[in-house]
Amino acid sequence: MSTDPPAEPAGPGTAGTVDPVARRRGVLLLAAVAVTVLALDLVTKIAAVANLEDRAPLTVIDGFFYLTLLRNPGAAWSMATGYTWILTIVAVVVVGVIIRIARRLASVGWAVGLGLVLGGALGNLVDRFFRAPGPMRGHVVDMLAVFSPDGSVFPVFNLADSGIVCGGILLVLIALRGIEIDGSRVADQRG
């Protein structure tokens, strides 16, 4: 029988450990953000298909913002259209990686950023699996256009894409500030 005192919960940044309460909060925040992005993406895609199918683009702000329906088999600007199945696999891997690293998550910023990316990846995965022409080949529904209604200036996108891009930018900014996923800060190496 051991006489060692019970271990104290580790705070953010303690070598190899994450405070379980901070981790739980981080994972819940990540999940809440991801579910919100996914739900908003699904609702807007359903509305776009119901209201924009077989219609000319709707001008919201002339010369700047339009609503139009585009079924995209590829990535931005319809790149990699013949590789929809590869894009699907990449998205599945991204989801898996985010779920795996969530075990160390104790930073609010990382939780929000990863939640945005996760929600966006799941939103586009739903299309890849459940929309025509079939599983792992489905075309993603895009409906938001800036500068031109046909996507010739900037690609037509959806809320899932916005979540991925905004989450990615947030994660880069957090990393540049030296904040680790567990909430600790990178030690100043300039010596």
Rank of each mutant, 00 (worst) to 15 (best):
G151W: 02
N72G: 12
V60M: 10
V156I: 15
V112L: 03
G96L: 03
A47M: 14
A160T: 11
L67M: 14
I46V: 10
A34K: 05
N158V: 03
T68I: 04
F129I: 14
A91Q: 04
I181G: 02
M143H: 10
I98S: 03
N72P: 04
W77H: 13
S184F: 04
F157Q: 04
V43G: 10
R177G: 13
L125M: 11
I181E: 07
W110A: 07
Q189D: 13
S148D: 15
M1T: 09
N72H: 09
D142L: 08
A160V: 07
L87M: 06
G109I: 04
T36R: 00
L28D: 01
L70K: 07
G11H: 06
V27S: 01
V21C: 00
M136F: 14
F130Q: 12
F129L: 15
M143T: 08
R25A: 03
A187W: 03
P133K: 10
L30M: 13
D188F: 04
A145C: 12
S2C: 08
V95Y: 05
T81N: 11
A56L: 09
A76Y: 01
A31H: 05
I164P: 12
L105F: 01
A75R: 00
L70Y: 12
H139K: 01
L28I: 05
D182R: 03
N51L: 08
P20I: 01
T88N: 12
G163W: 04
R23G: 14
P149W: 11
P133E: 12
L105W: 00
G163N: 05
C166I: 15
A39V: 15
T84S: 13
D127S: 09
T84C: 02
V97R: 09
G109W: 02
R23I: 00
F147A: 13
G163A: 08
P155A: 14
G115R: 00
F147D: 05
V117F: 12
D4T: 09
G191Q: 03
V153M: 10
L58R: 15
T88E: 13
I61A: 11
D142S: 11
A121V: 02
G13I: 01
I89P: 00
F64N: 00
V93I: 15
F157D: 05
W77D: 06
V60N: 07
L159H: 07
Y83L: 14
V117H: 07
R190S: 15
R25K: 15
G178K: 08
S184E: 04
A145Y: 06
R25N: 13
L38T: 06
L116E: 02
V94D: 09
G168M: 02
V92A: 14
V37H: 07
L42T: 07
R25V: 02
L159W: 13
N51W: 12
R185Y: 11
I86H: 00
V146C: 04
V112A: 05
S107A: 14
R24N: 10
L176G: 14
P57A: 08
A121T: 10
A80I: 08
E53H: 14
V21R: 14
L69D: 11
T36D: 07
K45F: 05
P20N: 07
G16L: 01
D62W: 08
M79R: 03
